[in-house]
Amino acid sequence: MSRTEKRTLRPEGRRPRIAFVHEWFTHFAGSEKVLEAMHKDYPEADIFALIDVIPEKERPAFLKDRQIRTSFLQKLPFIRHYYRFLLPILPFAVEQINLAGYDIVVTNSHAVAKGVITGPNQLHICMCYTPMRYAWDLQDQYLENSKFPGPMQWLARWFLHKIRIWDVRTANGVDHFIAVSKYISRRIRKVYRRESTVIHCNVETDNFTIGAPAGDFYLAASRIVPYKKMKLIVEAFNEMPDKKLCVIGAGPGLKTLQAIAKSNVQVMGYQPYKVLLEKMQTARAFVFAAEEDFGIVPVEAQACGTPVVAYSVGGAAETVVDGVTGVHFHEQSVPAICAAVERLERIHGGFDRETIRAHALKFSTQRFQREFSELLEEKWRLHCEDIAIKPTEPKFEKIA
């Protein structure tokens, strides 16, 4: 028996060694908050990532004083500024992460993390936010926004073709998929032909509470990038001069929004959490037009008791209850948003803020942690039965 084979055997009675694999740490946002919630019950588990470039002053508490095990990409100068352009080599980079000493591998994946190499005696659970969108259904939008010249367009298409092949192949290395919404569960079935367990993302609902009575304005808050459809929302309210809109967010499209906004639309740019919370608590409704895999911000708005005008495709179709916690519109167009706003105003008195908040609590962090731990423990027990070892609680045994 080789030395490597000996390392993969599981002695009976010892707790499993757990590794979390995250794509990259560049800022602290949605997927990082999910990782934090998953890691909380297994604090001695090791964390891997392709790169870690979060500034020290912005690092969340669970990453402070913790060594993140990174790939060779970490050593490249100024990697923070161009890592996304290295997509053709990211599959190779993630395959170089050595996980041979671990029993349970949890990948936190929306791009390449699930492509880590694991052995037959290792349990690989993938928390999947989406199959890689820019390689699949958003390929044309990705290439259009990239503005590559002619020859580069065809080279990019060839690389994306190769990545699709790799993406499907590596799905076979995942033992169990977790989908962040029913919408993503359908996408996993479509792309990988695999079933998944739906565990909705965690939302810090305790940080968003009901505030002062609703004001006379609508709120839209997001990064200002094309797929968030913030420009579409502004254009819709430009057509409704009797209704006020407040826009919070930063991004490459900020100047465009400021240029096209009419007098009833206030584009505030980036605002600190305190301002966002106050606006969210006092808005007449929150407007959300993106096709999101889950969509955390609409749930945060509902935790404030604020109804949501939501596009009915993607995660928002599951988190916003039409006629109860908000209203849906069914196409990303100015007339559809205008009609939804008019409908909300006709039934506005029928929205109960306590009912809206109670619905949002179904997506709390506590609920997520319970569901994730229960799934991990069940899959670990079944895995132990499969490889004929004595199951133990998957609490943690750290690699030296």
Rank of each mutant, 00 (worst) to 15 (best):
E12V: 04
A19T: 12
L35R: 03
P43T: 01
P43Y: 01
D46V: 06
I51T: 12
F62V: 04
I68C: 11
L76E: 01
R80A: 13
Y83L: 01
L86G: 12
L86I: 06
I89R: 05
P91I: 14
V94G: 05
N98F: 02
G101I: 00
V105T: 11
A111C: 09
V116I: 09
H124K: 00
C126S: 13
C128M: 15
Y129M: 02
Y129C: 14
D137E: 15
Y142C: 09
S146N: 06
K147F: 07
R164Y: 12
R164I: 06
R164H: 09
G173R: 14
D175R: 03
H176G: 00
S181V: 04
Y183F: 14
Y183C: 00
I188D: 14
R189K: 15
V191I: 15
V191P: 05
Y192W: 11
Y192V: 11
R194C: 12
V198L: 05
N202S: 10
T205C: 15
D206K: 02
G215H: 04
Y218Q: 04
A220M: 02
K229N: 15
L232T: 09
E235T: 07
A236D: 12
M240H: 00
N264Q: 07
Q271P: 03
Y273K: 14
E278H: 09
K279I: 00
M280F: 09
V287D: 11
A290P: 00
A290T: 02
E292V: 06
D293P: 05
F294A: 09
T306W: 06
V309F: 10
A317P: 06
G323N: 01
H330K: 05
S333H: 01
R343N: 10
R343G: 08
G349W: 03
E354T: 13
T355Q: 13
K362M: 05
Q366G: 09
F368K: 04
L375P: 05
W380A: 11
H383A: 15
E385L: 10
A388F: 00
I389V: 15
K390S: 10
P391A: 12
